[in-house]
């Protein structure tokens, strides 16, 4: 009771689309496709995310770990950098209507370094307050609509991940969070990594980033819920 009152005394911390636009550090940003003549060379990228294509240095976001080596000071040409958080991509053809109002989410750590998990955890903080958007974390996949997988799937976690997926009721969707989950990232060549998530279970939403910031995660959740407002913090948008 005491804490309840103390909590009411605090100012409202929850971000709104308006306040979030004035803040820095919500998103680290990521390299943007750059004309080849101004771009950093392909071989500077440790995860081979840079590919030249028709005179444009393209970025394969499923590989990019945002290490900023393509912007280091010693380079003559640097990659362009884009801010923002509309990073989520749909990789399956359809999403069920059943998710329009509320989704329950189970997070599976399949070899995560802790950063993606912490960003997911941060979503539950008053700053992002994902509950108000109708999203809730559940303790078991049995009650989950969406399985969020982070980390390159390690050999030891592969079966467990399959088990979690199979335990979910239909309709179910899988969201792969973080570059590691999309391609293995910097761990892709490790012998103990079984491969990206889509090699184990079908992925419907991919959110690249190392780690993707909370707003990018929210963007993914909003996409799965069938709405994709300009700012994922906008609670009023309904399809």
């Amino acid at each position: 009771m005491l804490w309840f009152r103390k909590g009411l005394d605090q100012p409202v911390r929850t971000l709104t689309p308006k306040t979030s636009s004035t803040l820095h550090g919500l998103s680290p940003g990521r390299p943007a496709p750059t004309p080849s003549r101004d771009a950093a060379p392909e071989d500077v990228c440790p995860t081979h995310a840079l590919k030249e294509h028709d005179g444009v240095m393209d970025v394969d976001y499923t590989q990019c770990i945002q290490c900023r080596l393509c912007r280091q000071q010693s380079l003559k040409n640097k990659m362009n950098w884009e801010e923002g958080f509309h990073w989520a991509q749909m990789t399956s053809t359809s999403l069920p209507d059943a998710f329009h109002h509320s989704v329950h989410v189970r997070v599976v750590d399949a070899g995560d370094c802790g950063a993606c998990l912490n960003e997911l955890h941060q979503l539950a903080s008053p700053v992002y307050s994902l509950h108000r958007l109708g999203i809730a974390f559940t303790p078991a996949p049995r009650e989950a609509d969406v399985l969020v997988v982070t980390g390159p799937v390690t050999v030891s976690m592969k079966e467990t991940l399959e088990e979690a997926f199979q335990s979910m009721p239909t309709p179910k969707r899988v969201m792969a969070v973080g570059t590691c989950a999309l391609s293995g990232g910097i761990f892709s060549s490790s012998f103990a990594v079984a491969g990206p998530v889509d090699r184990v279970i079908p992925v419907d939403i991919a959110i690249p980033g190392c780690p993707p910031p909370p707003l990018a995660l929210l963007d993914g959740f909003r996409l799965i819920m069938g709405a994709r407002p300009e700012n994922p913090l906008d609670g009023r948008v309904r399809k």
């Binding site: 078991a140 996949p141 049995r142 079966e159 467990t160 088990e163 979690a164 199979q166 335990s167």
Partner: peptide, 9 residues
């Protein structure tokens, strides 16, 4: 499906 057992089969 088998009961959920924390990921253990």
């Amino acid at each position: 499906h088998e009961p959920w057992q924390g990921g253990v089969r």
